[in-house]
């Protein structure tokens, strides 16, 4: 009995040590922007089921939405078709102006800004406590770590690890991840770093003299080759002066409702 008890505790200890080793392996792989083979294997085994559950849940939600709001959905659909026609005309104008800007920059010996192609993906997993989502696009679609993930409302987060057909995204609500941000409502726009406080609140740190008021729009700074400038992040809700650090603590409500994500776009 005693030897059996000792064996049980030894197995427990071995499993805990193995957990530590797997965690270390995971961290090392993550630093290289990829998933470790254990995580990748587990996710590949559970992906079909998770995708099935996601499709079923989305389908059920859409079904009841259609049942209870059919008239409104039809009206919205007609409106969207009109908007699509208008947007296509603007897109042509925008493309022409972008080419002209690039030509002017070329005359000044500056590199072209260039456009970014969009990769559409579905959210197949969401871990709110870990401030992460998993999306259905990866290396096969040309994604790489650090790219911006967004919706029509604004920035969702950045890609951390990329597998063949899926990627892990760290949300802007993560308290451990800072992103360059500007208060785009001001000219010149104050620059700072923004990080998450919780799912519904972000905190931007600015210089104490930075002009900023409630309601100002905060966007990405663009001081990165992977996250372009001007993607909306949120609006200023409160501004506090911090005399001890000589900075301003700016509370920002995120533009995107992170709890209701279904489809996202990756700018590559």
């Amino acid at each position: 009995m005693k030897s059996s008890g000792g064996r049980d505790f030894l197995i427990l200890l071995a499993l805990c040590v193995l957990g530590g080793v797997l965690g270390r392996l995971q961290s090392n792989s993550r630093q290289n922007g990829i998933s470790d083979f254990v995580s990748a294997a587990v996710r590949s085994v559970t992906r079909p089921l998770a995708t099935g559950f996601t499709s079923a849940a989305n389908g059920a939600g859409d079904f009841f939405e259609g049942i209870f709001n059919a008239a409104e959905l039809s009206r919205k659909s007609r409106e969207l078709k009109q908007y699509q026609l208008i947007a296509s005309q603007y897109s042509e104008t925008l493309a022409r102006l972008s080419r002209e800007i690039d030509n002017i920059r070329a005359l000044q010996s500056l590199p072209p800004i260039g456009g970014r192609s969009k990769v559409y993906a579905t959210v197949i997993a969401f871990a709110p406590n870990e401030n992460r989502i998993t999306i259905s696009a990866g290396k096969a679609q040309g994604l790489r770590p650090g790219l911006a993930v967004l919706t029509a409302e604004g920035l969702v987060g950045t890609i951390q690890t990329v597998d063949h057909q899926e990627s892990q995204v760290i949300l802007i609500s993560d308290p451990n991840r800072k992103i360059g941000a500007i208060v785009i409502s001001r000219d010149p726009p104050p620059i700072g770093l923004i990080k998450g406080e919780n799912e519904a609140l972000l905190v931007l740190t600015l210089d104490s003299t930075a002009p900023v008021e409630n309601g100002d729009l905060v966007s990405t700074s663009g001081f990165s080759d992977r996250i372009p400038r001007g993607i909306p992040i949120g609006r200023v809700n409160q501004v506090y002066a911090d005399p001890t650090t000589g900075s301003k603590r700016v509370e920002v409500f995120p533009s995107v409702g992170l709890g209701n994500l279904r489809e996202v776009v990756v700018l590559k």
Binding site: G19, L22, R24, Q26, V38, A127, R132, T134
Partner: peptide, 17 residues
């Protein structure tokens, strides 16, 4: 714990132990 750490992408050690 292994499954949880893998599917949410968080640090596996804390979940496994």
């Amino acid at each position: 714990g292994l499954s949880m750490g893998a599917v949410v992408g968080a640090n596996m050690t804390q979940y496994v132990i």
